[in-house]
Amino acid sequence: MEHPHGLSRIYPVKPADVYLFATCLIDQFAPEAGMDTIRLLEREGITVHFPEGQTCCGQPAYTSGYPEEARAVARLQLDLFPQPWPVVVPSGSCAAMMRHHYPKLFADDPPVLAKAEELAQRIFELTEFLVQVAGFAHPDSGEPCTVALHTSCHARREMGSHETSAALLANLEHVAVVEQARIEECCGFGGTFAIRHPDISEAIVTDKVASLKDSGTRRVVSADCGCLFNILGRAARLDEIAGSPAPTLEGEHIASFLWRRTGGAEQ
């Protein structure tokens, strides 16, 4: 599969063990996505190790201009993965942070930098790992449905994993993936941007919700919970305002969608 410039990498053979870095959002707000990630990986015959010491990749402070605070948090994660196993991250954004920005964060601290660079080589976004390493191939056993895929900007532009997300959905026989207008445009989340510039963020996410709905589907999946919470939170608020009795846009993490579609729920 072609990668955007500079993102191509060499993939390892399917390992017996992987680490899971689940992200703070999944740990606290979407644990089922984390469980489904584990189930997907285990079904491939891979043992999943969840280092209990993990908290957050540190990205919120890093992108907000608090490097010291980000370093303190990122530093904690560096020691959690001592075996040379791949680290699977069910978020393009957090994966990009660990893969591309940890080395920048520790650039001035050579011993830690060496550790960060070594870890960066082992960071894989979930769908990237499923396609490129695990060779995911399971038949779709669900009812026909349509779905839109939202890929986060970091998945798309730093990990190239928008393509693996799309490939996984494309292989689901009974799922029609609709393409929304301006699919490559940001959803307006941007971490603390949504808090710092709520008006601009609202304008962007409102457009995103509209283009998703205009695509003719009521369901969106994404490999990034930050974007999902932003999009679904806005859609739900718009439903409230419109007095809509039922949600007009629903969504879930791609791990949960994949697990359900490929018969995981019955196993």
Binding site: D27, Q28, F29, M35, P198, V205, G233, A236, R237
Partner: peptide, 19 residues
């Protein structure tokens, strides 16, 4: 600022680490 435009974020009853 989050809920000015969105429904609130609610933590899950159990964290991933609990599950």
């Amino acid at each position: 600022a989050w809920t000015r435009s969105r429904t609130p974020l609610v933590p899950a009853p159990k964290r991933l680490r609990d599950l």
